[in-house]
Design a protein around this nucleic acid. Structure first.
Length: 637
RNA sequence: GCCGGUGUAGCUCAAUGGUAGAGCAGCUGAUUUGUAAUCAGCAGGUUGGGGGUUCAAGUCCCUUCGCCGGCUCCA
């Protein structure tokens, strides 16, 4: 019979051939590297039979799909090792994930990070034993009997839809309920490492039992594993919590968990960022507002926050009246809207607010500046006519993209979330809103993932997510269509027909949280912020004490045009001061000694480079101003 | 919130239940330095807080707070 290979050629194989036979017919080297095969688009075991006319692709250990198979198989080996070491262990689930795999267990005893060594050793032993993975199809009854002692597996089997195929895999003494596919034998897994142990609710449900999850990763070779571990370590070096402290940008204190303290240098970065933000927003036709941090409870009851968001809010009492600290800016913004009567001619009205909000997040989710209890939203509310919605959304998307491009963000992914089960509004309202968002995304030529049923209860939304150095993704920009707030808070405008109508409200952020965005920037640049954002843009380094006076002159000259410049007047060696400047990631180090005083020049050393160049004071000032210039802004919609 | 881990000087880390230490940073002095750490000295602590066991606790137990990892990836 004939099978079709990915390059378009045919391969003749004997009847009854398997994926292994196909790989071997093509070549021994390929067969050695093969971990699975893809038959007609589906990744399956090597041992799967192929049929006449099938298109067959051999999956090697170097492809993403191959890695996934290896890691999934490694998870089974982890389970075998765990069960062997801790008899009585109940196994739950163990999938491959982004950079590795995990397996959830219920252990009869406490198992912590200290035990990982022992388990790894056991796994390594199992790997070298060349055990084959054998697949078997079983009936539901047989499966239930096989896993009678495994409550979690039994639950999974019972939840499988009637008539679905149930397969099990056995390697060595361990059998697991599994869809597969798996590597032909354990030796193909190569190298494994267990990374951490953590708690995880069974099926992610906080009402269900807490299991012990062991995270690990696997690679075809030890070399690749070591490279991955090195990458992990490098990522840790870029952690914004570490860099924030080392660069003197911000701190956290026991006295205010989740409430960040910004130091002078941190504020310089934020202010530079916000200067840019303001210029972009003015260019895009926004006005800026500011609303109070606390408002009466009744407002939150009317806005719906009391019912939907109370658990995350902080409260206080003033003169025996209940107040709430704002978790969102919108209700305050609507009060500004309502101070005047509005005409359709006013629209679109774009009111921005850098609003400080407080949210009582669960203590366990706090995470540096990424997840805090107090943050500044770069919020804006756009009030407009239904017919203006699409243009406004496109405008927001353009603004987001333009601003993200400024920072060189490439790994941004976009989600469009549609109507959830519990929601308000009519079917056609939702349809209009969703298609407006989709149309805007199409017009912007953006790829996005549809996230059905994940919209807000009052309207659909577009979210932008950015990845941090550890591969975690964080939502930044959001753009939501809101039909509820205008209704609940009774907003109106007078239309062309001289009748009152409800305006459409668009709720959007670009950075999301200024604090989170700063953290992302720190990690993105590894602390080496572009010159326009750097807290200290230049340090003047006098060679000896007698050059300090000239250094001060240079510094004053450069500061005159707004450059953030300091003099390192310590009695230290030039090498030491250069080193400290580099460690603090200062973009420009300006050395001045006898030569420079003599010729009234400075010698500029640019961050990360050993090259130096001599400039007259005037040229140096022009050069540094040009290199530290904030980005140009867009022309607006 | 839940599970596990962790908490020693500003930072990074030592200290078989038996006198709390080092490096960096800080301060003082010497050195006057030409592109990633000059040398010496000094100072720095209720070992997160509270309680307990013990002749004796940084170390063991309880409790509380903070921090770290995870709880999203679903056989």
């Amino acid at each position: 019979m004939k099978v079709l290979l990915p390059d378009g050629s045919d391969l003749i194989v004997p009847d009854g051939a398997t994926g292994t036979d196909v790989a071997q017919t093509i070549g021994q080297r390929l067969a050695k590297a093969a971990v699975a095969v893809k038959i007609n688009g589906e990744v399956v075991d090597m041992a799967t039979a192929v049929h006449d006319g099938d298109s067959v692709a051999v999956i090697t250990d170097s492809s993403p799909e191959g890695l996934e198979v290896i890691r999934h198989s490694a998870a089974h080996v982890l389970a075998e090792a765990a069960v062997k070491l801790y008899p009585g262990t109940k196994v739950a689930i163990g999938p491959a994930i982004r950079d590795g795999f995990y397996y959830d267990f219920e252990f009869p005893q406490q198992v912590g990070e200290d035990d990982l060594h022992k388990i790894t050793d056991q796994m390594t032993r199992l790997l070298t034993e060349h055990r084959a993975f054998n697949r078997r199809q079983v009936s539901r009854e047989e499966a239930l009997k096989l896993f009678a002692d495994e409550p979690y597996k039994s639950e999974l089997i019972r939840d499988l839809p009637e008539g679905s195929a149930i397969s099990i895999y056995t390697q060595g003494e361990f059998t697991d309920l599994c869809r597969g596919p798996h590597v032909p034998d354990t030796a193909r897994i190569g190298a494994v490492a267990l990374l951490s142990v953590a708690g995880a609710y069974w099926r992610g449900d906080s009402k269900k039992p807490m299991l012990t999850r062991i995270y690990g990763t696997a690679f075809p070779t030890k070399k690749e594993l070591d490279e991955y571990l090195t990458r992990l370590e490098m990522a840790r070096q870029r952690d914004h919590r570490r860099l924030g402290r080392e660069l003197g940008l911000f701190s956290f204190h026991d006295e205010g968990p989740g409430f960040p303290f910004f130091h002078p240098k941190g504020m310089r970065v934020i202010n530079a960022l916000l200067d840019y933000w303001r210029r972009e927003h003015v260019a895009a036709g926004y006005d800026e507002t500011k609303t109070p941090i606390m408002l009466e409870r009744t407002l939150w009851e009317h806005s719906g926050h009391w019912d939907n968001y109370k658990d995350n809010m902080y409260f206080t009492v003033i003169d025996e009246v209940d107040f709430a600290v704002k978790p969102m800016n919108c209700p305050g913004g609507t009060l500004i809207y309502k101070t005047d009567q509005h005409s359709y001619r006013d629209f679109p009205m774009r009111m921005a607010e850098l609003g400080l909000v407080h949210r009582h997040e669960l203590s366990g989710v706090l995470h540096g500046l990424f997840r805090v209890r107090m943050f500044t939203q770069d919020d804006a509310h756009i009030f407009c006519l239904p017919t203006q919605v699409e243009d406004e959304i496109v405008g927001v998307i353009d603004l987001v993209q333009r601003m993200y491009r400024t920072f060189g963000f490439e790994r941004v992914h976009i989600e469009l979330s549609t109507r959830p089960a519990k929601s308000i509004g009519t079917e056609e309202m939702w349809h209009t809103a969703e298609s407006a968002l989709a149309a805007a995304l199409e017009r912007a030529g953006l790829e996005y993932v549809l996230n059905p049923g994940d919209g807000a209860f009052y309207g659909p939304k577009i979210d932008f997510h950015i990845e941090d150095v550890m591969g975690r993704t964080w939502q930044c920009a959001t753009c939501q269509l809101d039909f509820a707030m205008p209704e609940k808070l009774d907003l109106d405008y007078v239309g062309e027909d001289n009748q009152k109508h409800r305006p459409v409200m668009i709720h959007r952020t670009v950075l999301g949280s200024v604090e989170r965005f700063l953290a992302i920037l720190i990690e993105h640049y590894g602390g080496a912020l572009p010159a326009w954002l750097a807290p200290v843009q230049a340090v003047v380094v006098p060679v000896a004490d007698r050059h300090v006076e000239y250094a001060e002159t240079v510094s004053r000259r450069l500061a005159g045009t707004g450059l953030r410049v300091e003099v390192d007047g310590r009695t230290e060696s030039v090498s030491k001061k250069i080193r400290d400047g580099e460690v603090l990631k200062v973009p420009f180090l300006l050395v001045v000694g006898d030569r420079e005083v003599e010729s009234q020049t400075v010698t500029i050393r640019t961050r990360g480079s050993k090259e130096t160049a001599s400039y007259s004071l005037e040229k140096a000032s022009a050069e540094l101003d040009a290199k530290a210039a904030p980005p140009a802004v867009g022309s607006g919609a």
